[in-house]
Design a protein around this nucleic acid. Structure first.
Length: 222
DNA sequence: CTCCGGATCCTCT
DNA sequence: GAGGATCCGGAGG
């Protein structure tokens, strides 16, 4: 990757080649990249400040018990088994969407969950989509918040993030201070320090606050 | 500031 | 059936 390109790298072929690698190596380099979605209502752009890497199925080279693909292909996770640069968007908790960018060559079933970012364009539209946010830095400070601010839903899963109405620009240079730690909200062994695959820009105010996975209420008593 | 519970339905076993 | 790669508002310190 030619990091000296003025204004960053936006050529889809170059970006897709970059995304063909291991998401754990891509993660610290993709921080600072700008993802844009041109919807009918207008564009919104987010500068990524926090991502998480998710690897492959249990019988693969890099199994990941925290990944949606751990148990193998399903209807939902199908895009993760496809080529890099495409979106994997899933619906969770009955009300939220979260978006990933598929990484690795087709078949690896790895991806980067877009956990947080700074809205750098289309702040008005992002605010309309996220009326609950109390400050601009909170517009995309969480995976469901980021997806909401960008207007992403399961209608977008499987779509190419490197072609209209989307675009992805890699930063002019890698972020100076990137740190890593265990992934947020992942229950079981995949959420431990054995899998320190959450990456974020140190001290960036838009990074989400860490929360460990919380056990659910049991609806049925013993 | 931190902690906690409820919301709400799709997905896979 | 069970539970989730979450968010938000309210209560308490």
């Amino acid at each position: 990757m030619d990091w000296s390109t003025e204004g960053g790298v936006g050529d889809p072929a170059a970006v897709r080649a970059f995304l063909e690698g291991d998401p754990r190596e891509i993660a610290p380099l993709i921080l600072g990249a700008v993802l844009t979605h041109h919807s009918e209502s207008g564009p919104v752009s987010v500068r990524l400040t926090e991502v998480e890497a998710y690897m492959g199925p249990r019988d693969s080279e890099h199994p990941d018990p925290g990944s949606h693909t751990f148990g193998g292909p399903t209807a939902r996770n199908a895009p993760m088994f496809g080529p890099p640069g495409f979106l994997y968007v899933y619906f969770t908790y009955g009300m939220h969407y979260c978006a990933n960018i598929v990484c690795g060559p087709a078949g690896k079933a790895s991806a980067l969950l877009l956990r947080a970012g700074e809205i750098v364009d289309g702040g008005g539209l992002a605010t309309l989509r996220r009326p609950a946010s109390k400050a601009p830095k909170d517009l995309a400070s969480g995976p469901a918040r980021l997806a909401s601010a960008l207007g992403l839903t399961t209608a977008d899963t499987g779509r190419d993030a490197l072609a209209e109405p989307f675009s992805l620009w890699l930063p002019e240079s890698p972020a100076a201070a990137v740190v890593s730690g265990p992934r947020v909200g992942v229950a079981g062994p995949g959420g431990t320090t054995e899998y320190p695959w959450r990456f974020w820009i140190e001290d960036d105010p838009t990074v989400s606050r860490y929360k460990a996975a919380r056990p659910r209420n049991r609806s049925v008593a013993g």
